[in-house]
């Protein structure tokens, strides 16, 4: 049977894949996609806990409201982030993060 632990484990695996992607990849766009993946993994945890913690016999809709806000913030963040990536590409002609290391000590 599928338990809450199964959902939490899938969410954790997805999060760790995204985390590894952020560390390993050097293409800014792929790093950004991995960030989105981590946000969605957190959303899965929230929805799972919402379903398994009943309030007045219904799933806890506060958690789903939080997921709604997360998705909204993520959408706004993607728009701004991609605009920054386009500006960066205009300045450097590259989307490789090794092209942007002026702040490196």
């Amino acid at each position: 049977m599928v338990t809450l632990n199964h959902y939490l484990l899938v969410s954790g695996l997805l999060f760790s894949i995204g985390l590894a992607g952020v560390v390993v990849r050097r293409n800014i766009l792929t790093i950004y996609m991995c960030l989105e993946m981590m946000l969605s993994a957190a959303n899965l945890t929230l929805v799972a806990f919402s379903r398994f913690r009943l309030v007045d016999g219904l799933p806890d809709y506060n958690a789903q409201a939080l997921v709604f806000f997360t998705i909204t913030v993520a959408a706004a963040e993607v728009a701004v982030g991609l605009a920054i990536i386009v500006a960066l590409f205009r300045a450097r002609q590259s989307v490789d993060i090794t092209a942007v290391e002026k702040l490196k000590g």
Binding site: M1, V2, T3, L4, R51, F52, L54, G57, L58, P59
Partner: peptide, 13 residues
């Protein structure tokens, strides 16, 4: 708490 299935916590209509 993680060993519950969805059927263990049914929605009480």
């Amino acid at each position: 708490a993680g060993k519950k299935t969805v059927n263990d916590v049914p929605v009480h209509f």
